[in-house]
C-alpha cells in the first residue's frame, strides 16, 4: 500500500469518526427532546463547529501517524511526494465529492420547498457533507488501487 493510499484511509477514518460523533449527538438530542428547544439552532451550530474542529485535529494526527509508520517501515525518512497522477486522482475525487454534495444540497432545498422545518434541511446538508467527503475518499482509494 502506497503512502497516498494510507493517508487517504486515515482521512476517511477521521471523516467517519466525525460523522459518527455528529450523529451520536443527533440521536442524543432526539432522545432528550432537544429538537423542540428554542436554542436548537445555536446548539446545532456549535455541534457542527466542534465536529469540524475534531475532524481537523484527527486528520492532522492520523496524517502524522501514517508518516511515522511509513518511515518506520522504510527505515528512513519518506519524502512527501505527490506527482501528477496523485493530483489528477485528487481532482477526480473532488469532482465526485462536489457532485454528491450538489445532490444533497438539491434534496435539502426540496425539503424546504415541501414545507418541512429548516432543521431537516440543515441536517440533510450536514449529512450530504459527510457523504460527499466519504465518497471522495472512497473514490480516491478506488482510483489508487486501479492505477488511475
Amino acid at each position: 500500500m502506497s503512502q497516498s493510499e494510507s493517508r487517504t484511509i486515515a482521512y476517511l477514518f477521521s471523516s467517519l469518526v466525525g460523522a459518527g460523533l455528529y450523529f451520536l449527538y443527533l440521536i442524543q438530542q432526539y432522545q432528550e427532546g432537544g429538537f423542540n428547544s428554542p436554542t436548537i439552532s445555536s446548539s446545532w451550530g456549535i455541534a457542527v463547529l466542534v465536529v469540524i474542529g475534531v475532524q481537523i485535529v484527527l486528520s492532522i494526527i492520523s496524517a502524522i501517524l501514517v508518516s511515522i509508520i511509513e518511515a518506520i517501515k522504510a527505515r528512513e525518512e519518506v519524502p512527501e511526494l505527490s506527482d501528477e497522477r496523485d493530483q489528477l486522482i485528487e481532482l477526480k475525487a473532488n469532482r465526485i465529492s462536489f457532485s454528491v454534495f450538489g445532490i444533497g444540497f438539491l434534496l435539502a432545498m426540496i425539503t424546504l420547498a415541501a414545507g418541512l422545518v429548516p432543521l431537516v434541511m440543515f441536517n440533510l446538508m450536514v449529512f450530504s457533507l459527510f457523504v460527499a467527503a466519504v465518497s471522495g475518499y472512497v473514490s480516491q482509494l478506488y482510483l489508487y488501487r486501479r492505477g488511475f
Binding site: 506527482d83 497522477r85 496523485d86 492505477g147
Partner: peptide, 22 residues
C-alpha cells in the same frame, strides 16, 4: 523522473497516460 513508483507501475500496465512533460 520525479514521480512515485505507483505512477510508473500504472504507466507500464497501461492504466495511466502521462503528461507530455513526464
Amino acid at each position: 523522473v520525479g514521480v512515485t513508483r505507483q505512477t510508473i507501475i500504472a504507466m507500464e500496465k497501461g492504466k495511466y497516460s502521462p503528461s507530455l512533460e513526464l
